[in-house]
Computed example of a mutant assay.
Amino acid sequence: MKTLQSPTDITVLARAAAKVKRHVLPLFVVMFIVNYIDRVNIGFVRSHLETDLGIGAAAYGLGAGLFFIGYALFEVPSNMLLQRYGARVWLTRIMFTWGAAAMAMAFVQGETSFYVLRFILGAAEAGFFPGIIYYFTQWLPASERGKTMAVFLSGSAIASV
């Protein structure tokens, strides 16, 4: 591994890191805010699922949990494909399939479609968070990653508001 020797190398690296933080980090923060809202919004629709679709507490709990089963099952394969295709391509795929699955939730007709779509939503979203971390490790020096991660993780606090 090459070590930085000259002030020019250090300046180029600092400018590149600043560019990533200026252009990419705000997008990632917005993505994380949407991710967090999407993950917790199931709690806000519980009464509507029960009233409008007849999905009871047990079915709701199973459906909410199926999201995490899909997420857990597809986390490692998603990360392997991220490594293969690159963060830009794979994070874009995650956003599109995640958005399509989230939109499809509007068409839930009963318990079965709720279960299937929650599982698909988890599978589609798998790899998002580690993909962002991977992206940061590829584009930012170690000295910049902690501050960048702090800004990125602030997205969950912003989403909670």
Rank of each mutant, 00 (worst) to 15 (best):
T3D: 12
L4Y: 15
P7F: 02
P7E: 13
I10Y: 05
T11A: 15
V12I: 14
R15M: 12
A17R: 03
K19E: 12
V20N: 11
R22K: 14
R22V: 10
H23Y: 13
V24H: 04
V24K: 00
M31W: 02
Y36N: 09
G43Q: 04
R46I: 04
R46K: 15
S47V: 04
S47W: 02
S47F: 09
H48L: 12
T51C: 04
L53W: 02
G54K: 04
A58H: 11
Y60M: 09
G61A: 15
G61F: 01
G61H: 02
G65Y: 00
F67C: 01
F68K: 00
G70T: 07
A72C: 15
L73E: 09
P77L: 07
S78P: 10
S78L: 08
M80A: 14
Y85H: 13
A87I: 06
A87S: 14
T92P: 01
F96H: 07
T97D: 04
T97G: 01
A100M: 12
A102G: 03
M103P: 03
E111F: 01
E111M: 02
T112R: 06
T112I: 15
S113A: 00
L117H: 04
R118N: 03
A124L: 05
E125L: 07
F128E: 02
F128T: 06
I132F: 06
F136N: 08
F136Q: 07
L140I: 06
L140V: 06
P141M: 05
E144Y: 08
K147P: 06
K147E: 11
L153A: 08
A157P: 06
